[in-house]
């Protein structure tokens, strides 16, 4: 049986993906930036919390790029003279927890419900869809106000509320796609083979829907960050002295004409984060699609040829 050796083993997936990431420099930069944010969110508060909370009334609204004060003041200071750099780093933890938690929660729940609604019988589908309609017909801000008023503002409650209001987006998209994909030939072929419903849903349907959902999730990331700041602004989200990027923007709003940097730097952090997520998700869409993957792999091999 010499044929046994003829089928080559799959190249290691991790190496393959690393090579494809290397081929797309934008995606690589985005991935590195997100890693940085992740690390900062993890250890930032522990390192810089004291600096971020210490008021310094002589340095109120200190302008950025003033090298004499020391590196921590490089981005300027806020209305109470607290260094913005330290505050952005510390705020990244809350911001990321809320945004990632809400996006992940709503995406997972919405997708699962959408898969069930699209694939299961008519009645189950109807019940789930009406549930989504109820959530959508209820103004999300009002829902948030009521829930947070009753439960009290905390990071966890905020995540739950934001997740619930974003579920219908994923649910409806997933259901619509599943309804189309389930009629495709390869799903029928799997049925003929005797594949169980979970196998069809997760092995055959989900991989096709996933790129769309990832794109929505990255767009939603920015939306959730801003929604969180709106809630904080209303006084029912994260409360000072806790900080988030959204809250920092809200606090800087009244000084916009005199000290732009108060809102600008946290705003830039939000923009860079969502931009990175977008770049990375569009890279992933290509990297996960076998019919598109060659674009990246070819670029990778081209890079190797060059000295």
């Amino acid at each position: 049986m010499t044929q046994i050796d003829v089928i080559p083993d799959e190249p290691k997936a991790l190496i393959r993906f690393a090579r494809m990431l290397w081929a797309d420099k934008f995606a690589l930069a985005a991935a590195l930036f997100l890693c940085l944010i992740f690390v900062l969110a993890l250890i930032g508060p522990w390192l810089l919390d004291a600096a971020a909370q210490k008021q310094n009334l002589r340095g109120r609204n200190a302008p950025p790029f003033d090298w004499e004060r020391g590196w921590i003041w490089i981005l300027g200071a806020d209305a109470l003279g607290r260094p913005l750099l330290a505050r952005i780093v510390v705020a990244s933890q809350n911001t990321m927890t809320v945004a990632a938690g809400a996006v992940l929660g709503s995406a997972v729940i919405g997708t699962v419900l959408g898969l069930v609604a699209g694939y299961a019988g008519k009645r189950t589908g109807l019940v789930i869809m009406r549930l989504a309609d109820v959530i959508m017909s209820f103004p999300s801000l009002l829902l948030a106000v009521v829930v947070l008023y009753i439960l009290g503002p905390s990071v966890l409650n905020l995540v739950v509320v934001l997740a619930i209001t974003r579920i219908p987006v994923y649910l409806r998209t997933t259901r619509a796609e599943v309804m189309e994909i389930r009629e495709r030939m390869f799903v029928q072929a799997a049925k003929v083979m005797g594949a169980s419903s979970p196998r069809i849903i997760f092995r055959h349907i989900l991989p096709v829907v996933l790129p769309t959902l990832m794109t929505i999730a990255t767009l939603d990331f920015a939306f959730v960050m801003l929604a969180e700041s709106a809630l904080s602004f209303l006084g029912i989200g994260i409360q000072p002295p806790e900080i988030t990027w959204g809250l920092m923007i809200a606090q800087g709003r009244q000084y916009l004409t005199t000290a732009w940097w108060l809102s600008f730097w946290p705003g830039l952090a939000i923009i860079l984060t969502t931009l990175s997520l977008n770049l990375l998700s569009s890279w992933m869409r290509i990297a996960l699609d076998p019919t598109q993957r060659w674009r990246l792999e070819m670029r990778a091999s081209k890079n190797e040829v060059k000295p």
Partner: peptide, 23 residues
């Protein structure tokens, strides 16, 4: 019985999942 009865479809482009290898 699914083992005994199999089907080959009209359009192989559609009946093979594009995200799976031949293996």
């Amino acid at each position: 019985l699914r083992r005994d009865l199999q089907m080959v479809f009209q359009d192989p482009t559609q009946s093979l999942n594009p995200r799976m290898t031949v293996w």
